[in-house]
Amino acid sequence: MVAADPVRVRRLSDQEGQQLLCTTRRGAGSPIRLRRAMVVLASADGSTVAAIARLVQADEDTIRQVIHRFNEMGMA
């Protein structure tokens, strides 16, 4: 049995990185948007799905879903 590649967010553009940082620093607005921004930034910094799940107190499958969705749709 071959292990699957770890789930990672794609390389962020400068604009995406700045937008995500602003979202996390402000901490205002939707808690869901804040949590998603934290997930994407943590993945971009090299954190594993398990570590991110502990950080934001979420299920690993949820973290993978957020990362996959960002990779497909970006900031939309």
Rank of each mutant, 00 (worst) to 15 (best):
M1A: 11
M1K: 10
M1V: 11
M1F: 13
M1G: 03
A3D: 14
A3M: 15
A4R: 15
A4K: 14
D5C: 06
D5P: 15
D5K: 12
P6H: 11
P6I: 08
P6S: 01
V7H: 02
V7Q: 13
V7S: 14
R8A: 10
V9P: 03
R10M: 10
R11I: 14
L12C: 07
S13L: 07
D14L: 09
D14H: 15
Q15F: 13
Q15G: 08
Q15T: 15
Q15S: 13
Q15A: 15
Q18M: 13
Q18D: 13
L20P: 07
L21W: 11
L21R: 15
C22H: 10
T23Y: 10
T23V: 14
T24Y: 02
R25C: 09
R26P: 01
R26W: 05
G29A: 03
G29N: 10
S30N: 02
S30G: 04
S30P: 03
P31C: 01
I32N: 03
R33K: 12
R33Q: 10
L34F: 14
L34N: 05
R35D: 01
R36F: 01
R36K: 14
R36Q: 04
R36T: 08
A37G: 08
M38R: 10
M38A: 01
M38G: 06
V39M: 04
V39D: 04
V39E: 09
V40D: 00
L41G: 00
A42Q: 08
A42N: 14
S43A: 08
S43K: 02
S43C: 09
A44L: 07
A44G: 08
G46V: 05
S47D: 09
V49Q: 02
A51C: 02
A53G: 02
A53N: 04
L55R: 12
L55P: 00
V56Q: 03
V56G: 00
V56N: 00
V56M: 01
Q57S: 04
Q57N: 11
A58W: 04
D59N: 09
D59L: 02
E60C: 06
E60G: 06
E60K: 05
D61C: 00
D61S: 05
T62R: 11
T62N: 02
T62K: 02
I63V: 12
R64T: 06
R64V: 09
Q65C: 05
V66R: 11
V66E: 10
I67T: 06
I67R: 03
I67Q: 00
I67S: 01
F70R: 06
F70N: 04
N71R: 10
N71P: 08
N71Q: 06
E72L: 07
E72D: 09
E72H: 07
M73T: 13
M73L: 13
G74K: 12
M75W: 09
M75Y: 07
M75K: 05
A76I: 11
A76V: 08
A76H: 14
A76T: 11
A76D: 06
